[in-house]
């Protein structure tokens, strides 16, 4: 279980990025954090990952405090961030250097097969497409078997078809392992397609506007009426949170 308690983040220049954000994520949930730009969603994820320290409040995973990156928490960034000087296989095994070689290779090959890149182990990152690179970066995060996986707009740099393909793929992977996923996005369709629970943030300072459970089972048809209803519900919530902000700015 991932717990964030009254997280505050104030930057040295005085900007309040997050104000008293609390979030409890139970094991196996897919929590999608949605919000307009500048509402602190990426900052929140970076605090959850331990890459940034909150100014106040704390984060814990299964009872362990997260103050810096922790083996139980994996992170997938918007860009694949692969090491260009390592092959796909070496990239995936990057976090496994403490294991003996045979075990490392076995785990790398197993996870490469799971993300559908079994034949790509010897390639260089520059030889991969954007979607393949992001799969490698997912594999690199999965191979250390973290209990919580954080994803910071992981598919936003991809074209629409690849994005849908990878969203479905992420759900397949999740169905197999039931890891806890916390994903940040500004794509409403992506949020509704993936989330078991939606968290809507509002800006200035970043706070939670509302959270609600998505009333859809898996697999979800993006064309169904119920899917459209959930999208509208999310849009309305987002619009509400932003209109409050706009009123604040103009008033």
């Amino acid at each position: 279980m991932l717990e964030a308690h009254q997280i505050r983040k104030t930057y040295p220049n005085g900007t309040v990025a997050l104000h008293d954000v609390s979030l409890n994520v139970t094991a196996g949930e897919i929590v999608v954090i949605v919000g307009g730009s500048g509402c602190g969603k990426s900052t929140l994820l970076r605090v959850l990952s331990g890459l940034e320290r909150p100014s106040a409040g704390w984060v814990s995973v299964d009872g362990a405090r997260i103050e810096e990156p922790h083996p139980a928490v994996g992170m997938i960034f918007q860009e694949p961030r692969l090491m260009p000087w390592l092959t796909v296989r070496q990239n995936v095994g990057f976090g496994l250097s403490h294991l003996p070689k045979a075990e490392r290779l076995a785990r790398v090959d197993e996870v490469l097969a799971r993300v559908g890149l079994a034949d790509y182990g010897r390639r260089w990152p520059r030889e991969l497409s954007g979607g393949q690179s992001q799969r490698v970066s997912i594999a690199r995060a999965l191979v250390t078997q973290p209990s919580v996986l954080l994803l910071d707009e992981p598919f936003s740099a991809l074209d629409a078809f690849t994005r849908i393909e990878l969203q479905d793929h992420l759900l397949e992977l999740w169905a197999g392992s039931r890891q806890t996923l916390v994903l940040v996005t500004h794509d409403i369709e992506e949020a509704v397609a993936l989330a078991t629970r939606l968290v809507v943030l509002k800006p200035a300072p970043g706070r939670i506007a509302t959270t609600f459970d998505v009333q859809l089972g898996q697999p979800r048809s993006r064309l169904s009426i119920a899917f459209g209803d959930e999208k509208r519900r999310l849009l309305a919530a987002l619009d509400h949170s932003l209109s409050e902000f706009r009123a604040q700015v103009s008033g």
Binding site: L51, P69, F77, R81, F94, G95, S97
Partner: peptide, 19 residues
């Protein structure tokens, strides 16, 4: 951004330099 990947995998300063 790539250095941050090293941090996520908790590399020591020496390992970060080398790898």
């Amino acid at each position: 951004k790539i250095v941050e990947v090293g941090r996520v995998f908790r590399l020591s300063p020496f390992a970060l330099t080398r790898r």
